[in-house]
Design a protein around this nucleic acid. Structure first.
Lengths: 216, 216
DNA sequence: TGATAATTTGACCGGTTGGTAAACATTACA
DNA sequence: TGTAATGTTTACCAACCGGTCAAATTATCA
């Protein structure tokens, strides 16, 4: 009799580690494309290259898989905001935050879509994480921005909506990729649109906040 | 023997009109929340307050329902962009475009989520509409913006990414509503966040484009 | 009114879904 | 090496899915 995942008290086999990785990678692929309800366990098993019962040996339910995936991804997803430094120069902090978020949209579009799907469908499984850790982190960084504005280092503005607008504009290039490609046409083969977007967003936000040429 | 929807050559009964309306309203509710694959016909039937076979009498397949809904909504969804006037004053045109888009996010969040779901999942059913009518309209308006920039009426910028950024920032308040509420906290009962967002976005875009105080 | 067409329903169907049972295979380790 | 724990597979199930069918009900109108 096997007690797979729940009984993992301390030690994890090499096999466990490898297979769980393999499964979460496949789950990311499928969930990010079809959402929770639209994804099927068979599909994930096929992408992961294993049988369905074998997959369910490591994650006992589809929901457990989804939970594990979301919590892991959420953590790395917030890294760019964590790096936002109160001691830094507002210009370079905001600029590099935008750049990092845009790079994530380019390099990890599936992670972005996974969240988008979850939030879009009412975030039934991560409401607590949103109201807890996420809100705390945003509150902290919003305060930094507020102080910068108060000190005249950037224009007075609502820091929360500033953060929202950076999130939405950058993630747009991952979540709405199909639309972006359709509108721009497929002339440009590579990632040219990301460089154009970076230039545009930098101009928009830095000029929009009166911080284009402020010294450190 | 009845030939329901396909045979509607010219006349439509009052009943037909009412029931189809009732169904599309319910379909909007369900599709916008769960996406195409996640939605079930039974669910839509229940929300519409009728039996499943009765619903399928008016729309023969789930896909037909979805198609009808998407094409109808897409049309009204692009209205704000259509109103964008080449002859108008750039300041007021951009300002009122942002305001209209934000009002739609506030008043028709389900329509916004319907599209977001569709695009997010690769737009399998509306790729043609994106590459055709949508692209044409955007091309036309982008040209207007380009001319404005060339004439020095607004800052030089990539018009396509400008449009993308207006779309993403405004629709964010519909598509990611749960997240926005979670971060802001539920202190504010009403639509205060929309007014704050309007103020912020106006400042961001108009200042960011050097058009804050330009006369007509 | 009566007959014809339009609408609605309950019963049902084949395929897919998430998940299970138990036999079989492999690994870890004393 | 032996054996117990871990890992894998085949066969399967009940619930749910989109959709059909024929019978029953209701609206239309000569």
């Amino acid at each position: 009799m096997a007690l797979p995942r729940a009984a993992r008290t301390q030690r994890r086999t090499r096999i466990q580690e490898a297979k769980e990785e393999q499964i979460l990678e496949a789950a990311l692929e499928v969930f990010s494309l079809h959402g929770f309800r639209g994804a099927t366990v068979d599909q994930i098993a096929e992408v992961a290259g294993m049988s369905k019962p074998n997959l369910l040996y490591y994650f006992r339910t589809k929901e457990a898989m989804h939970r594990a995936l979301i919590t892991r991804v959420l953590d790395t997803w917030l890294d760019p905001l964590r790096e936002f430094d109160a001691e830094g120069n507002p210009v370079s902090e905001i600029r590099s935050y935008i750049r990092r978020k845009l790079e994530m949209a380019r390099d990890f579009p599936r992670e972005s879509r996974l969240f988008a799907n979850e939030i879009l469908q009412g975030a039934p499984n991560i409401e607590d994480e949103l109201k807890g850790p996420l809100k705390s982190l945003v509150d902290e960084k919003a305060e930094v921005i507020r102080v910068w504005a108060k000190a005249g280092k950037i224009a007075k503005c609502d820091p929360y909506h500033l953060i929202f607008s950076i999130w939405s504009t950058t993630q747009h290039y991952a979540d709405f990729d199909v639309q972006v490609r359709a509108v721009l046409g497929q002339d440009q083969a590579g990632d040219g649109r990301f460089e154009d977007a970076a230039r545009f967003l930098e101009q928009l936000f830095l000029t929009g906040l009166h911080v284009s040429e402020q010294p450190a």
